[in-house]
Design a protein around this nucleic acid. Structure first.
Length: 115
DNA sequence: AATGTGACACAAT
DNA sequence: TATTGTGCCACAT
């Protein structure tokens, strides 16, 4: 039987990893992409989150995924732009000027933590 | 079928 | 140090 191509798998893979991000922690697109094997295709992770948008709010903590600089680049895609920052602060992550404070410290790398 | 767009990342200038 | 340009892969039109 022919199974579904890997395309679908990519999205699910992203969802899995994002879902594994501990509360109060954040990850980056590139880190996830690298972990999936598509090193450099961080954009696809972002796309996956957009596709996950309807899912995420209640299933996947997409607000814990930011760019490598700790900037909440995707907040604009939330129902409410401030929702992303609100949720992060609610989990103990301080956000200043749309950027995660101590991002380096809160950074959760699947390639290492999930090893 | 082909082109453009996109929640990024990195190298070069 | 900041800015610009290119690479990456999948989806939308």
């Amino acid at each position: 039987m022919k199974e579904k191509p890997d395309k679908r798998n990519f999205f699910e893979d992203v969802y899995q990893v994002v879902r594994l991000i501990p509360r109060g922690r954040v990850s980056s697109y590139g880190a996830i992409a690298s972990y999936l094997g598509s090193k450099g295709s961080a954009r696809m992770v972002g796309w996956a989150l957009i596709a996950a948008h309807p899912f995420s709010a209640s299933q996947i903590p997409t607000h814990r995924v930011v760019n490598r600089l700790g900037l909440l680049t995707g907040k604009q895609h939330f129902d409410v732009p401030s929702a992303m920052q609100e949720r992060l602060e609610q989990e103990g992550v301080r956000v200043q000027n749309d950027k995660v404070v101590d991002f380096d410290q809160l950074f959760w790398d699947p390639a290492k933590e999930l090893l």
